[in-house]
């Protein structure tokens, strides 16, 4: 329990030490960490590699922006509607994608999210197409003005910590133990009395819900949503964060999200070609560091302390 608390305290102290630029960067990292952690539920704990998770981030963001800009609803009404709508969509997508496992599952999730991506470009009356939906204002909980970097960061941090805590509880629950069982030995799990399909479907919906939460935070941060947020590249960035950090660990997606965003941010100062760098990082990580950074460092640490003792 010590390490998570220390991380939260440090994260809470950050605005005292850093300027606005870094506070905003930290907000983005927290949002991206929630997104990556929701992918990790499927990939790391369920063994289900999804390449379509941007669908939930993007649809929740689009729903919020659409309801706010075109129907002029209030944020307190929009947020639950966007979350419920996106979660229902996750339920339907899960019915389709979980007809397969392994590569079939991956291709189905990819195809489903690409359909949404294409629709976001073409359904101009709803999405404003390539222009994206612009002009959303941040919510003002308890009348606090969230347009400043610092209050918004604390808003994101509170929700982000809650989200990751809820996901951590989920994977350490009895249900989480059965989920890991379905990843390792699905046949045995059926023989032990578990409905493997239902376990996966529930997890798929739960992961979709937290993906939607990250989408709400995402659209609050940017006040803007564009089809690119639904793209394969966005799903892939989330997946990369999970793999880079270490899938199937709690810290993995958080560390991975920080690595990917810092890299992206650093790179954008020097080069224009983020996608090419992203591609090279993908190849590099998969070929050279398939276990991820967190387990890799952990292993080195254990080896070091073992040689000391």
């Amino acid at each position: 329990m010590k390490t998570p608390l220390a991380v939260i305290v440090l994260a809470a102290l950050l605005p005292l030490l850093a300027g606005e630029y870094y506070i905003n960067l930290a907000s983005q990292i927290v949002i991206f960490a929630v997104f990556a952690a929701s992918i990790n539920l499927l990939l790391g704990y369920g063994g289900l590699a999804t390449l379509g998770h941007a669908a939930y981030l993007g649809v929740a963001a689009y729903l919020s922006a659409f309801l706010y800009l075109k129907l002029q609803l209030a944020h307190w009404a929009i947020a639950p509607l966007a979350l419920i709508g996106t979660t229902l969509m996750a339920g339907v997508f899960g019915l389709v994608a979980l007809r397969a496992t392994g590569l079939g599952f991956l291709m189905l999730t990819l195809a489903l999210s690409q359909v949404l991506w294409g629709t976001a470009y073409r359904w101009v009356s709803v999405t404003d197409g390539d222009n994206g939906l612009r002009g959303l204002a941040r919510p003002m909980p308890f009348g606090i003005n969230m347009n400043e970097a610092m209050p918004f960061y604390y808003f994101v941090l509170v929700i982000g910590v809650f989200a990751i805590w809820m996901m951590a509880r989920f994977v350490s629950s009895p249900f989480g133990a059965t989920l890991r069982g379905t990843r390792d030995q699905p046949r045995r799990m059926s023989a032990l009395g578990y409905d493997v399909w239902l376990i996966r479907w529930i997890t798929f919906i739960y992961a979709g819900f937290w993906g939607a939460v990250s989408g709400l935070l995402f659209v609050y941060y940017h006040k803007y949503i564009h089809p690119v947020s639904l793209s394969l590249a966005n799903s892939a960035e989330g997946l990369l964060a999970v793999i880079a950090g270490g899938s199937g660990t709690l810290a993995g997606p958080i560390v991975g999200a920080a690595i990917v965003l810092l890299l992206k941010n650093w790179a954008s100062a020097y080069i224009e070609r983020w996608n090419m760098l992203l591609g090279f990082v993908f190849v590099f990580i998969v070929v050279l560091m398939p276990e991820g950074v967190v387990p890799g460092v952990k292993r080195l640490w254990q080896r070091r302390s073992a040689s000391r003792g």
Binding site: A49, A233, N275, L278, G279, F282, V283, V286, V287, P290
Partner: peptide
């Protein structure tokens, strides 16, 4: 090089597709 790592192979092809596109 990463034969047998099914997910890894998919991710590498994905990474290479980003490189080609860029």
């Amino acid at each position: 090089q990463i034969g047998g790592n099914v997910l890894g192979q998919v991710l590498v092809t994905l990474g290479v597709s980003f490189i080609i596109a860029d």
